Amino acid sequence: MKFIIQRDQLIASVQNVMKAISPRTVIPILTGIKVEAKSHGVTLTGSDSDVSIESYIPAEENEKVNVEQIEEGSIVLQAKYFPDIVRKLPEKTVEIESDSDLKVTIRSGKAEFTLNGQDAEEYPQLPKIQTDDSFELPIDLLKSLIKQTVFAVSTMETRPILTGVNINLKENVLKFIATDSHRLASREIPVTNTNIEFNNIVVPGKSLNELNKILVDAEETVEISVTNNQILFKTKHLNFLSRLLDGNYPETSRLIPEQSKTLIQVKTKELLSTIDRASLLAKEERNNVVRLTTQGTGLIEITSNSPEIGNVTEDITVQSIEGEELKISFSSKYMIEALKAIEYDEVSIAFTGAMRPFIIRPVNDDSILQLILPVRTY
């Protein structure tokens, strides 16, 4: 195998596939990056058997040559050393060559490295997903679906299914739901031009976080395909394959209250910064709890009290308050994360009493929903 490649292209691809490589894998060869050269371009692969990422560099694109003098072949390089070497090479192009003894020479300018490679035949074959059953989404829309839900997954392995995001596609509506049983985040969007349906697909939150980092905010679309235990996200130069979590996701619709007793409409940024300030005195020991109290005509009071430290009180003017008076305590961390995920200027918050879950939504948009369980404070 031999080729000469643009160094910046190689660095970008290496960084992408590194996101799937874990030093703790039980299969030794998976600590490496697989490099495969074909006449039309070079593909890099990284995998930890839960997530696999393939990054493709075409030989030529938009009249720009990325890879030249290609002699076909493949090799696995040690991920511990290869990325650092590539990053520190002196010139804009890199020549990579492997011989029959699996020795790999990396040249750039006057620098020359020799690395011991491994036989690519021993690298596990990635499962091929049949992409007949697929649908497309704009990349920026997929990224906002992930951003508005994934933060609410559970970090506790006691209920593994809750460490993932539940994805359903039914009657041309795609819905993402995440919950850690103290809060819930969901977002739905219409999906046209597809007739496929699936439900109870749960993608690990960790996979979606990595995918979100890798996807470039270009105007491109991403093609999504699902099989019984894998999901594939495919763009022009990237295949991102993740296993799905086993088990049934809990039925969450019954958590969402049908009616409310108190309804507040408020500017998102104002509420966010007030709760952020109140949380300064609500540090770890008491679950970061702050209290919200309605003050009659168009005012709410946000307070936090730590006996050892002190307390804080701040009033905010809200756009409107309807219904019963209310005192409610909740985790400031959950509230801050929920408000940050809603990218709208105003939110409406529907309360059903001091000990019932409450719902935060953007004003005039029901497709985004955040639910938080209150905290008992007595």
Rank of each mutant, 00 (worst) to 15 (best):
L238Y: 08
G298E: 14
I5A: 02
P23E: 09
E324R: 15
L174E: 01
S144L: 05
H182D: 04
E68I: 14
N305K: 15
I231Y: 02
H40K: 11
N311D: 14
D99N: 13
Q265D: 08
S22C: 11
P257R: 08
T268P: 07
T194Y: 01
L271I: 05
F351I: 07
R277G: 09
N311V: 11
L232E: 01
E210D: 07
K170M: 10
K88S: 10
Y81R: 12
S367G: 03
K327L: 11
S348I: 15
F82V: 02
S74L: 11
L169Q: 06
K88I: 06
T235H: 07
K92G: 06
Q69R: 14
T268A: 13
T131P: 00
S134K: 02
L89A: 01
A218M: 12
Q370W: 10
M355G: 09
I231A: 08
P28S: 06
E324M: 14
I316R: 00
P124V: 10
L373R: 03
T45K: 06
E72C: 10
F113N: 03
T352D: 15
E220A: 07
L263D: 13
S225H: 07
E72L: 09
L238A: 10
G247A: 00
L371W: 00
A350S: 14
E337Y: 04
T294E: 02
V216Q: 12
